[in-house]
Computed example of a mutant assay.
Amino acid sequence: MIIGWVVVAVIGALVLLSAGLMFFTLLAARYAEKLVPPIGTFVDVDGARLHFVDRGAGPVIVMVHGLAGNLRNFYALIERLSVDHRVVAVDRPGCGYSTMRSGEHPSMRAQAALIAQLIRKLHLGQPTVVGHSMGGALSLALAIDHPDCVRALALIAPLSNVERAPPNGLKILRIKSPLVQWMVAWMFSAPIGKLIHRESLKAVFAPEAAVESFDTSGGAVLGLRPWAFSAACKDMVAISREMAAIPPSYPTLTIPVSVIFGRQDAVLNHETHGEQLVAALPNGNLHVMEGGGHMILVTQPDHVADLIRQSTHHRSTSSA
Rank of each mutant, 00 (worst) to 15 (best):
M1K: 08
I2W: 12
W5R: 05
V6N: 01
G12K: 06
A13E: 01
V15N: 08
M22P: 03
M22A: 13
F24W: 06
A32I: 03
E33A: 01
L35R: 13
P38M: 12
F42G: 10
G47L: 01
L50R: 14
D54G: 06
G56E: 07
G56V: 12
I61F: 02
L67H: 11
A68P: 03
F74D: 09
L77Q: 14
L77M: 14
D84S: 14
H85I: 09
H85M: 08
V87H: 12
V90T: 10
D91G: 09
D91P: 12
R92H: 07
C95A: 15
Y97L: 10
R101F: 14
E104C: 09
H105K: 00
M108Y: 03
M108C: 04
L118T: 08
L118A: 07
K121W: 04
H123T: 12
H123W: 14
V129N: 07
V129E: 05
G131P: 05
G131E: 07
G136K: 04
A141F: 02
A143S: 11
D148Q: 15
D148T: 13
A152Y: 07
A152P: 09
A152E: 09
E163G: 02
R164F: 13
I172H: 02
S177W: 12
P178R: 14
V180F: 14
A185E: 05
S189Y: 03
A190F: 04
L195T: 08
L195K: 11
S200K: 07
P207T: 12
E208R: 03
A209L: 05
T216G: 02
S217D: 12
S217P: 01
G218S: 06
G219W: 01
R225H: 12
F229P: 00
A232Q: 09
M236H: 08
M236N: 06
V237P: 02
T252Y: 00
G262Y: 00
R263P: 01
Q264Y: 11
Q264D: 15
Q264L: 14
A266G: 07
A266R: 10
L277A: 06
L281E: 11
L281H: 09
L286T: 08
V288S: 05
G291K: 03
G293P: 04
M295W: 01
I296G: 13
Q300R: 12
D302M: 03
H303M: 07
D306L: 07
D306R: 13
L307M: 09
I308R: 07
T312Y: 14
T312S: 11
H313Y: 10
T317W: 05
S319T: 08
